[in-house]
């Protein structure tokens, strides 16, 4: 008995940490691939409605976002409480839409221009008035692929 105990005490069972960097790198690459860096801070309150018939937006580089909703509390003193449009990281008017689309087009190769999609992230409590105005402007600008952003419905 004593013999066994002694032997066990002597050997230090060290786990090899040589592969630790590899494991960490693997995790790192996973997160690097799935990461979407949040490009714009929301200045309007957007809680998109629920829906069931959802499609996935595939290529992130072909999508630009338009946010419609009521300004957040801290902006209400300046911008009021009626629904506003946000393009990029600032409030915008309908007249800014064509330029916004053109700017996005410049970053996309010409062969892909037909697949550019506008993702409308609209708050559920907004009335259709401003949404219709935005849609009309999009049609006039020739940007016809639109995605009404929505959450999957939880039963």
């Amino acid at each position: 008995m004593a013999k066994f105990k002694k032997k066990r005490g002597k050997t230090t069972p060290a786990i090899s940490t040589a592969s630790l960097p590899d494991i960490i790198f693997m995790l790192l690459f996973f997160f690097m691939v799935v990461t979407v860096l949040r490009d714009s801070e929301l200045m309007v309150r957007v809680i998109v409605p629920e829906a069931t018939e959802l499609d996935k937006l595939e290529q992130k580089s072909l999508v630009h976002y338009m946010y419609i909703g009521r300004p957040l509390k801290k902006y209400q003193a300046v911008y009021g409480t009626s629904p506003r449009l946000q393009l990029g990281d600032k409030f915008a008017t309908l007249e800014d839409i064509p330029l916004f689309i053109e700017k996005h087009k410049l970053t996309v190769p010409e062969s892909q221009h037909g697949r550019i999609t506008t993702s409308l992230r609209v708050d559920g409590d907004v009335t259709m008035g401003i949404v219709t105005d935005v849609k009309t402007k999009l049609r006039k600008s020739g940007q016809l692929l639109v995605n009404y952003s929505a959450r999957p419905k939880v039963e």
Partner: peptide, 30 residues
């Protein structure tokens, strides 16, 4: 490992794994 950990934590914090979903619509030309 430390360097990789640092990067890993950075990406962990900034990650938002939400695929944008929605109802796809093709508007008629104006």
């Amino acid at each position: 490992a430390d360097i990789a950990f640092l990067l890993l934590i950075f990406f962990l914090v900034t990650t938002t794994i939400d695929v944008d979903k929605g109802i796809r619509v093709k508007l008629p030309p104006w």
